[in-house]
Design a protein around this nucleic acid. Structure first.
Length: 370
DNA sequence: CGCATACCAATA
DNA sequence: ATTGGTATGC
């Protein structure tokens, strides 16, 4: 049944990595939690102890007498796990390097160990992050799972460990050609996707029209792994619903561009608070292309070659789900205030200095209505 | 390029 | 009113 792989939690923390807004398709069942994920041909189940990662595989149409087949499947799953979690990358070593370069990082590293970048399927990653605009993790998760349930047949069902009489069905992520069908937009709207319904259908259609149906569309995306970052980014920006932020998420999370730092409002706030980036006091300070570049450049300079991976640790530490519940630690109050980045040109208005952050990372400056 | 507005739905 | 943005128009 369960297979094991020696792996300290400092190299991989499942509870953080699978719930921090990289993938939206892992489901946690039972307690202690078991994490399940449906691939094209199987369901992979995971849990972990401080020293070991445990995994098991469910195939459709299990042959009761096919133990050799099961053995082969577990070996294949292990290969997939090493690829998906990028286990060849020594995360402890990276943490040590980031901590040496950055005091902000060193102040949180022990509380947020084992946060690494997944190497996701590019198409799933692309569609999932088209859903992410103006949205939150909880709803994105519901949308992605509704999409799978509606557009791909259940591969198999497995009992819920906390209630073994209940069988849970698992659906793979649908293929581009399925989502390219004309009726998809209307259906997704009914499923609550809002304006993103059109983006998904159009992106899938464009992928199929331009690069062919079947495996070809997905091969095109996968091949962007061998394409230089800027060129790959330009390809992604052609898709409807894909702007700079979504493109950068895909580059980082499924196309091996480990240095890319996606800048969303959270990262923007982190950059202002801890890395000396200018923040407009303007209520609706939009993310302009220029500001995006500025933040991106700064963070790459701080964290180096694996900046995108480091960003994920900081980002996760800033998530409410991981920092809430009033967990305060003593040393979190003494973070260095970075020297403000000299702004060569104008500044819009005076930026008052009276802002004292209650806690270094958690909580951003909220505007209060008058 | 910078800025404004619409877009769906849930509310951390 | 706000939210892990993007498309469109000026």
């Amino acid at each position: 049944m369960w297979q094991s792989l020696p792996l300290p939690q400092s190299q991989l923390c499942l509870s953080a990595v699978l719930k921090c807004g990289q993938s939206f398709r892992w489901v946690a069942v039972g307690s202690p939690p078991e994490y399940r994920f449906c691939l094209r041909d199987r369901v992979v189940c995971l849990n972990q102890s401080p020293t070991t990662l445990f995994y098991r595989t469910f195939l459709p149409y299990p042959q009761p007498s096919a133990l050799p087949q099961q053995h082969i499947a577990e070996a294949e799953t292990l290969v997939w796990l090493k690829d998906y979690f990028q286990l060849d990358v020594d995360l402890q070593k990276l943490y040590a390097e980031w901590a040496a370069r950055d005091k902000v990082f060193s102040s949180i590293e022990t509380r947020f160990a084992g946060i690494r970048m997944l190497r996701q399927d590019p198409f799933e990653n692309l569609i999932s992050f088209i859903c992410s605009s103006n949205n939150n993790i909880g709803r994105i998760t519901k949308m992605v799972q509704a999409l799978c349930k509606h557009y791909s047949a259940p591969l198999l069902s497995i009992p819920d460990p906390s209630d073994p009489l209940v069988e849970v069905e698992y659906h793979p992520f649908p293929s581009p050609s399925v989502l390219a069908a004309p009726g998809v937009e209307a259906t997704l709207r009914d499923l609550g996707f809002g304006y993103r319904a059109k983006f998904i259908q159009r992106t899938a259609q464009m992928l199929v029209d331009t690069h062919g149906s079947g495996e070809l569309a997905e091969k095109f995306l996968a091949n962007l792994r061998n394409t230089p970052t800027e060129e790959a980014r330009q390809e992604l920006l052609k898709f409807m619903g894909v702007g700079r932020k979504v493109a950068d998420c895909v580059l980082l999370m499924s196309l091996d561009k480990k240095e890319v730092v996606p800048v969303d409002t959270h990262v923007h706030q982190i950059a202002i608070k801890h890395y000396g980036l200018k923040g407009s006091l303007n209520a609706k300070s939009n993310m302009t292309p220029k500001l995006y570049e500025e933040i991106n450049t700064k963070l790459v300079a701080v964290w180096g070659d694996y900046a995108g991976w480091a960003h994920s640790v900081l980002f996760t530490s800033d998530l409410k789900a991981f920092s809430a519940h009033g967990v305060e630690t003593a040393e979190t109050t003494a973070l260095p205030t970075p020297p403000p980045t000299p702004s060569p040109l104008k500044r819009k208005g005076g930026v008052p200095e009276g802002d004292v952050p209650p806690s270094p990372l958690i909580g951003r400056a909220k505007r209060r209505r008058t």
